[in-house]
C-alpha cells in the first residue's frame, strides 16, 4: 500500500515585502491534494535548499516581485543541483519580463507563471511534470 503525495516547497526569496500571491498558490496546491511546505518571507537560496533537502520535496516553487529574480532564481537552481537534487522540479512566479523566461529555463527553472495565472494551470503543470 504505497500512498504517494506530491510535496511542494513554496518559498519567497529576496527582500520584497508581501507574500499574498505565494499564499494563494500554496492554498490552491493544498486543495489539489498536495502537501505544501510554506517557509515565509526573506529566504536566502541556502535556506531554501536546506529546507528542500530536509522536507524531501518534489517541487520547489519560488515567488518574487522585485527585479532580482534572475540572480535569486538561478542561485536556488544551482544550489539544488550542487546538492544532488536534480529531480526537483523548479517553478517560478511573479512579475518576470518575457525576455528573461528562456534564460531562466536554461538555468533549470522549468516554468514561469506570470501574475494572474489561474491556479489550476499551475496545479496541472506540476502533476504533469513532477519527476518522481
Amino acid at each position: 500500500m504505497v500512498e504517494r503525495k506530491i510535496r511542494v516547497l513554496v518559498a519567497k526569496p529576496g527582500l520584497d515585502g508581501h507574500d499574498r500571491g505565494a499564499k494563494i498558490v500554496a492554498r490552491a496546491l493544498r486543495d489539489a491534494g498536495m502537501e505544501v511546505i510554506y517557509t515565509g518571507l526573506h529566504q536566502t537560496a541556502e535556506m531554501i535548499v536546506e529546507a528542500a533537502i530536509q522536507e524531501d520535496v518534489d517541487v520547489v516553487g519560488l515567488s518574487l516581485l522585485s527585479g532580482a529574480h534572475m540572480t535569486l532564481f538561478v542561485d536556488v537552481a544551482k544550489l539544488l543541483k550542487k546538492n544532488g537534487l536534480d529531480e526537483v522540479l523548479i517553478i517560478g512566479g511573479g512579475i518576470i519580463p518575457v525576455e528573461d523566461v528562456p534564460k531562466l529555463q536554461k538555468e533549470g527553472i522549468a516554468a514561469v507563471f506570470g501574475p494572474g495565472t489561474p491556479t489550476e494551470k499551475i496545479v496541472e503543470y506540476i502533476i504533469k511534470n513532477v519527476k518522481r
Binding site: 500554496a26 492554498r27 493544498r30 502537501e35 511546505i37 515565509g40 541556502e46 535556506m47 529546507a51
Partner: peptide, 25 residues
C-alpha cells in the same frame, strides 16, 4: 482534498542553516 498546508517552518527558518538541527513537516 488530502492536501495540507504545513507552515510551522516559517517560525523556524533561522534554524535552517544549522547542521545540528533537522526539521521535518
Amino acid at each position: 482534498s488530502g492536501g495540507a498546508l504545513l507552515g510551522d517552518r516559517v517560525r523556524m527558518m533561522e534554524l535552517a542553516m544549522d547542521d545540528g538541527v533537522f526539521i521535518r513537516s
